[in-house]
Every structure is written in structure tokens, then in C-alpha cells.
Amino acid sequence: MPTADIIQPAAQIEATIANMAEALNHLCQQHGIEQPLMIGIHTGGVWVARHLHRRLGLEEPLGFLDISFYRDDFTHIGLHPQVHPSELPVAVDDRAVILVDDVLQSGRTVRAALNVLFDYGRPSLVLLAILAQRDGRELPITPDVVGLHVNLERGAHIKLNGPDPLYLEQRATAPGTPS
């Protein structure tokens, strides 16, 4: 079994998310966005998005995106074992969208999520909010709001556990194949 260290416990995550909500509020004011649409990426992104959605007091329901059918590694590792249906209850056309995920590493998930999003319509603007950002970017993707920055050793991985309580954990080796 790989060893796991909790790098951010539940209490601290609450505070991190509160800071993120504040930063998002600020950013929306800057862009003149009054009612952004919030969309979380399954599974961890949805957990974070629920908290942000509540803190921002958004009236329209939260959307969920599943990227399983848009992954770029299908021909290498096949179909993802767990698929949750995407659920976008509000049309995204001409809307400002806040896309939320838990961890940003290679950037491939965000790439896939943007493709899903654009198969649902044409948003006017997309902001990216990330709970934890780490090194290892493989695509030109930069978040607009970041909860915390983590520096990890080679081969180490971070994982958000949840939904209740939420805590971030570091593992020496990944349970799966890194992409």
C-alpha cells in the first residue's frame, strides 16, 4: 500500500474554499459578471463546487460535467470504470461559466471538460477555479483562482477525499498510471 499523508485537513479546506469564493467574487466584479453559472467536474470538482456555489449564493442550480467520454487516453487504457452522467440544467450559451475542479496537474482533464462544455453550447466566458494546483502541466492551461499550491516529489500524487469531510491527501505513488 502506498503511504498517505493528509496535507490539508477538513478545517483548513473550509478556509481555503472560503478564500477561493472571495477571489471569485472579486474576479466576477472585475469582469462585470452578475450571475455566473457554476459547473463542477466529476467527482472531486463537484464536491468543491458545491461549497463554492453555496458561498457565492448562486441561484441557478449547479452543473455537473463528466469527462469520461472525452478523455484522450481511451485508446491506451479503455473506458473509465465509473461514469456519471453530465448534467447541465441551465443552457450555457452566452453565459459566464465558472469551471471547478479539485486538482490541476497535467491540464488534460480541463481540456476535456472544455470540449464537453462546448458540445453543450457557446459560453461567453469561462473561468477556471482549482482547489489545489501542482507542478506537471502538459498543456497551456492556467487557472484563474487557486486555493493552494503544492510542490510534490516526482511520482507523488494528491487526491481529494470527500464529500464529507473534505480533506487532501498525498500519496507516494499513484494507484493508477500517470498520464
Binding site: F69, T75, I77, P81, Q82, R108, T109, P175, G176, T177
Partner: peptide, 21 residues
């Protein structure tokens, strides 16, 4: 998609949650 997804699996671990951050 399940059958096509089994094609290039020689020696590769199946898809997991953590593989695609």
C-alpha cells in the same frame, strides 16, 4: 466503447480516477 476500449490494453493498467488530473 467497452469493447473498443479493451483493444490497446496490453500490459496497461485499466483506467482509474487518479490517472487523469
Amino acid at each position: 466503447s467497452t469493447c473498443l476500449g479493451s483493444h490497446n490494453l496490453s500490459g496497461q493498467a485499466p483506467a482509474t480516477e487518479a490517472a487523469h488530473d
